[in-house]
């Protein structure tokens, strides 16, 4: 009996030692020498691997930062300025302050505003619906409402409003840009968050002539150009029957929303206006 025990101990011990030696040798042979700063930087990053920075993941960004030894043009949308400052401090670099951004849905073609003309049946993905037809409301640029953006979001920051059939971006959006890529119609845009989360934007991207777009959707931008005249800061660009507010120039003066005849210009998180009977606009929804 003892002999067997001894034999087992010896043979298993020998096996273990051999395996350890092999493992050690392999580990030495394939050792990767890496800049230790990469690990430090990667630790500072949020680790969400959302790809919002433009690199494949947090580690890829860390490698790039250490390799370039500069933070120019690098940003971490979920981490924001704090994370970048942290990294800058560790590496002894200078981080440029960036304005916080958020994803904005530029379509207001809800079931009510753009009543359905046909019914869609099949796989609930915008990518397919986009290739099949113009959309239930008839607007060839409007939201299809199948929720590819919701599926693409890793942060649970966008959801489908059952009532309107439109996606709604929540405040915890980190502007990683996944939904922007997922939307086959480029409705979602990354815009400046604005002071106190206040934003003004044209909630329509329809480039058709006013009469045509209006037929499909009550709240389409009809390309009348009134807002352009109203703006004192040249912040509104007018092209292809469509107004676009440049968020870098917009001063959030709130002059354009009331003049829009269809209410396509939305303002978010502003205090309520004093009642002005001559304006026809309804207050924009959040």
């Amino acid at each position: 009996m003892n002999e067997i025990t001894l034999l087992s101990v010896i043979s298993l011990g020998a096996l273990g030692t051999i395996a350890a030696v092999i493992l050690y040798m392999v580990a030495q042979k394939f050792k990767v020498i890496e800049d230790p700063r990469i690990d430090i930087v990667a630790d500072k990053l949020p680790g969400a691997n959302c790809g919002g920075c433009g690199y494949a993941g947090c580690r890829a960004l860390a490698e790039e930062i250490v390799r370039k030894e500069s933070l120019d043009g690098m940003s971490c949308p979920p981490g924001g300025n704090d994370v970048m400052k942290d990294i800058a401090a560790v590496l002894g670099l200078e981080a440029t302050e960036q304005d916080p951004t958020i994803a904005v849905v530029r379509c207001n073609g809800s079931h009510e505003n753009s009543p359905p003309k046909v019914r869609y049946e099949g796989a609930m993905t915008c990518a397919f619906a986009h290739s099949l037809f113009a959309g239930t409301g008839g607007c060839p640029q409007g939201c299809l409402g199948c929720g590819d953006c919701v599926v693409s979001c890793d942060f649970d920051a966008i959801y489908m409003d059952e009532q309107t059939g439109l996606p709604v971006v929540k405040d915890n959006c980190v502007s990683c840009g996944a939904c922007v890529k997922a939307c086959p119609r480029n409705i979602i845009e990354i815009r400046k968050r604005g002071k106190k989360d206040r934003r003004i934007f044209v909630s329509c991207i329809n480039k058709e002539k006013g009469g045509v777009s209006r037929k499909n959707c009550k709240v389409a931008c009809i390309g009348c150009g009134k807002c352009v005249k109203e703006c004192n800061f040249e912040a509104i660009v007018f092209e292809n029957n469509l107004a676009y507010i440049d968020y870098n120039k917009c001063t959030l003066c709130r002059k354009c929303p009331p003049v829009c005849p269809t209410g396509a210009i939305h303002e978010l998180n502003f205090p309520p206006r004093k009642p002005r009977p001559e304006t026809k606009t309804e207050p924009a929804q959040a």
């Binding site: 099949g122 796989a123 993905t125 990518a127 397919f128 290739s131």
Partner: peptide, 12 residues
């Protein structure tokens, strides 16, 4: 199941 719908997206 909408097999072909998904396959079409994949083909694209």
């Amino acid at each position: 199941r909408p097999l072909l719908d998904h396959i079409r997206i994949g083909k694209g």
